[in-house]
Amino acid sequence: METKDSKAKGSFKGLLPLIGFLVLYILAGLVSGKFDSMPLLVGMTIAGMISFILPPAEGEPKLTFQQKIMKFCKGGGEAVERPI
Score class of each variant (00 low, 15 high):
Glu2Asp: 14
Thr3Arg: 12
Lys4Asn: 11
Asp5Asn: 10
Ala8Pro: 09
Ala8Lys: 15
Lys9Ile: 09
Lys9Gly: 11
Gly10Glu: 11
Gly10Met: 10
Leu16Pro: 05
Pro17Cys: 03
Pro17Glu: 01
Ile19Lys: 05
Ile19Gly: 03
Ile19Gln: 03
Phe21Arg: 00
Phe21Glu: 02
Leu22Trp: 08
Tyr25Ile: 04
Tyr25Ala: 13
Tyr25Pro: 01
Leu27Val: 14
Leu27Glu: 06
Ala28Tyr: 00
Gly29Tyr: 05
Leu30Gly: 09
Val31Gln: 05
Lys34Glu: 14
Phe35Ile: 01
Asp36Ser: 07
Ser37Pro: 02
Pro39Ser: 08
Leu41Thr: 12
Val42Arg: 00
Met44Trp: 04
Met44His: 01
Met44Gln: 02
Thr45Asn: 04
Ile46Trp: 00
Ala47Phe: 01
Ala47Tyr: 02
Ala47Thr: 05
Ser51Lys: 07
Phe52Gly: 01
Phe52Leu: 15
Ala57Gly: 05
Ala57Thr: 03
Pro61Gly: 01
Lys62Gln: 06
Lys62Asn: 07
Leu63Lys: 11
Leu63His: 09
Thr64Cys: 03
Phe65Asn: 07
Phe65Leu: 12
Gln66Gly: 13
Lys68Thr: 04
Lys68Glu: 06
Lys68Leu: 01
Ile69Phe: 10
Phe72Gln: 07
Lys74Ala: 13
Gly75Val: 04
Gly77Val: 04
Glu78Asp: 12
Ala79Arg: 13
Val80Pro: 02
Glu81Cys: 08
Arg82Ile: 14
